[in-house]
Design a protein around this nucleic acid. Structure first.
Lengths: 141, 141
DNA sequence: GTGCTTGCAAATCGTTTGCAATAGC
DNA sequence: GCTATTGCAAACGATTTGCAAGCAC
């Protein structure tokens, strides 16, 4: 059985100068299809069935490559694990201290254009806005 | 030689309902005196001379306690290590990718009052605004 | 004495490294 | 054949855990 390449994933890689491979396309595809801010382990377990020979090392290497090339975001909102986001458009994140889920929130309009500029003489290349608290669902219980 | 208690550190602990001990006061004092966003190891090595019997476990436990009680901030801006900040007033942080130093920046006035409110139905208790890039000093070289 | 705090050693776990096997041009 | 990519196993390092000893009221 052949692996079904995802056109969107391939295009994303190419647009970021990343040479496509089975593994890279599959991981990019996973990020595009799963907007759940998966951890390395989530990605690995999610693809282990599709690509039985996949190594966790490759997942680490690939996700690191993606974030360096700007093809994905590396989130450090949760101190115990790194999460990844295939949505690279400007937005913020909310971590629920109850269920540990990460939610997307809108980026305040006023800050969208800070990347590339400088603050207090420092050159900004990345913006990470994180909020923590209790999510809607956890508040209900 | 007796350990010199810091009044400010003791007061900070009491105001956050944390029972003072030699170790806790010393660690709080270290955070107040060292505005360098130290890691657990920084705090441990900084105090090892003053308190020779200090254990790294205690530093971990104490810093975790401080951040839970709101007596200090736990920063996850650097994915390879957790940093702590004795300054709990609203401000943002900048991580230099060159020298790994963390700088303080001002928090935009408009977001200071978001704590305690809710966004998209989620109750916000913490705000972490992180910027990354190259700092003033690293740009000069 | 009871309960909280500390500190040591061992265990855990996410992540990185070294290197040999493999795939792509 | 050359270079880049993958994958395994071992190493690493930050953090946590279990538990016994110490301290405070």
């Amino acid at each position: 059985m052949g692996f079904k390449y995802s056109e969107e994933a391939v295009e994303r890689l190419k647009s970021k100068s990343i040479k496509p491979s089975i593994q890279r396309v599959a991981i990019m595809d996973y990020l595009i299809m799963n907007r759940t801010h998966p951890s390395v382990d989530d990605v690995y377990r999610g693809l282990a069935n599709t690509i039985p020979t996949l190594s966790k090392t490759t997942v680490y290497n690939t996700l690191k490559l993606f974030s360096e090339k700007g093809a994905a975001l590396m989130l450090t909102i949760d101190e115990s694990r790194v999460n990844f986001d295939g949505d690279t458009s400007p937005h913020t994140h909310f971590l629920c201290k109850g269920c540990s889920k990460i939610y997307d929130l809108q980026m305040p309009a006023s800050v969208k254009e800070v990347v590339g500029m400088s603050l207090a003489g420092h050159q900004i290349s990345e913006i990470h806005y994180y909020y923590k608290g209790l999510c809607r669902s956890c508040l209900e219980v």
